[in-house]
Write a protein that binds this DNA or RNA. Sequence first.
DNA 1: TTGTACGCGTTATCAC
DNA 2: GTGATAACGCGTACAA
Lengths: 367, 367
Amino acid sequence: MVTHAQRSRGTMTGTATGRRRSTTKAARARATLSDVAREAGVSLATASRALNGTSGRAVGDGLRERVQAAADRLDYSPDANAQAMARGRTASIGLVVHDIADPYFSSIAAGVTAAADAGGYAVTLANTQHDHVRELHFVQTLQSQRARAIILAGGRQDDDEANDRLRAALRGYREQGGTVAVIGQAILGVSTVRVDNVGGSAALATALHGLGYRRFGVMAGPQRHLTARERTTGFVDALARLGVDVPPAAVVHSEFTRTGGNTALAELLLRAPDVELVFAVNDVMAVGAMSAARDAGIVVPGGLAFAGFDDIATLHDVNPALTTVHLPLEEMGRLATPLALDAAAEPREVVVTGEVRLRDSTPARSA
Amino acid sequence: MVTHAQRSRGTMTGTATGRRRSTTKAARARATLSDVAREAGVSLATASRALNGTSGRAVGDGLRERVQAAADRLDYSPDANAQAMARGRTASIGLVVHDIADPYFSSIAAGVTAAADAGGYAVTLANTQHDHVRELHFVQTLQSQRARAIILAGGRQDDDEANDRLRAALRGYREQGGTVAVIGQAILGVSTVRVDNVGGSAALATALHGLGYRRFGVMAGPQRHLTARERTTGFVDALARLGVDVPPAAVVHSEFTRTGGNTALAELLLRAPDVELVFAVNDVMAVGAMSAARDAGIVVPGGLAFAGFDDIATLHDVNPALTTVHLPLEEMGRLATPLALDAAAEPREVVVTGEVRLRDSTPARSA
DNA sequence: TTGTACGCGTTATCAC
DNA sequence: GTGATAACGCGTACAA
């Protein structure tokens, strides 16, 4: 089935180069644009123009069809790498996430791929696994690949050294013509889809206060995690403005994950036994904590109410339904794409505001 | 801050080519390998060898360091596209999924990125959104990019035309030196991580039968969806072997999604009011159906028990905990990567068997 | 409208 | 061990 096409190549300068691919037996020589041109009986330039409108204007209808036919016949597939070299730019954008398995990021990725696809871009996915070094490394790799733009998704850490390093890497990338956008905090000096974590958690706090809750506990996530921190302070400060105090003892730190919420609940209950409602800075923590509460024999939401943040779609069917702050994750990815592609000198900022979704996990406490 | 480096380039053939990037103001000329070579006072060849061991043997220690220093000084970033051209191969693998926002695929993606990263490969993500045409298009795009390998994740459809087209596209890709692996069914003639859906659902059926259940309903997913079909028949056939009949009326078809499970429950209960347990062919459908049951005033699992398939991590905290068949999704992605990279002539097959996880949604019915 | 010829940045082959 | 130099496949001024 596999045929070894044996044919001369190009206009020939002299040495009949045996292709290096001759080592493997399964590979048939790729048809190049020169092959197509020769097959169609036109020049290389004409073939190029016929297959992608650009350059010196249009091509005669007859020729265009001949070239197209030849290309089809030879199963011609343009070499994107060669095109990238010749054009000086690629059609791919890099997406850097902390953990693609996390529904937060996979939703964003869905938005990015949709927008990229619509714009004719390919997406290179980089999964840092929460590792700063790896993140830096990916930026360099994407720069090597001459990715046209990079989208950095996910909140930043309070880590000056890491941030500085990243800023430097991004500066290098941008100086070489790349453009960048971040989803999270606007602290990198580039265009940002900023999540209004403070506003969202404040709105949530206010709504819960309106429901009659007064004694709150907070599962605040990692200390240096900016998103976690913003959501915590937004929540606590809003309550303070309402005259409700959240004692430091009722704020416990843990990982940003399901496990973090699950294991930290015990500590919270130990330090603040009288809380009525636990606000976890993201949904998965909230759900993990809810499970821990049940395992401890606590009735949910009767004995203890729970609220989260993000509104992860996969979690819509937990029982009781989780009160949370809805974030348009997929749209955030979609929004970030043109932002990343935009070469504007001044960084732009798009603010995404969450929307409070009151559900069964926080019933009114009017009684 | 941005400096316009004004320097001559290369050994110069004559025309002092003004770089095309001179139009934008923000871009600084990229340092090329020639620049590094000149800066270090060595030849291009030596510079190339110094920076990546290959080609004509080693480089003297002194020179190697000088080149490295020059590269650092100039902020040299190798052009992956140029390397790809010169080497005749890239270091990126394409991952094609139906929906990256689906936890099933995002977990697989996590496994693929981890394995790819370890092997020094970049991952290009393509999201088909369940569109055959788009899937085909992505294979061609990846071929254009000369991706070294392609991983097709996700079950196939019973659609000869679409499958044939895909097979043809893959054949073209492979003839040009690419390698392919599929996660799902082994019907494409390429290496496959095959999910033993039949065995998994059969084991589940047996276990549930052992728990005392006798009247089953099945939310069977889309008619032509092979994964859905395999899980359905595996389940039904195993019960038949145990002497339990699942009447056709108790098998309802719907979408493979949460919504599919949610909306189809009513129909199932209408057609088979006496079922004790509903097996949905994946977890999200099961959870959606569970919600629908609750909304209909049915007690879960007392009034109706539920089981799913996949064991999606994000769903671990639904209440009651969902009985399901555990699939090592991330590992499946990890396994698929070397399989995809392998250029073996004969397609290989790795079988992944699910593991039954009995949980609270299907309590023993010994009474 | 079409063709010629050069350059894109790198690797690899061959002499030295 | 090191240095010329020919590819790699394509886009595009420039000339015709």
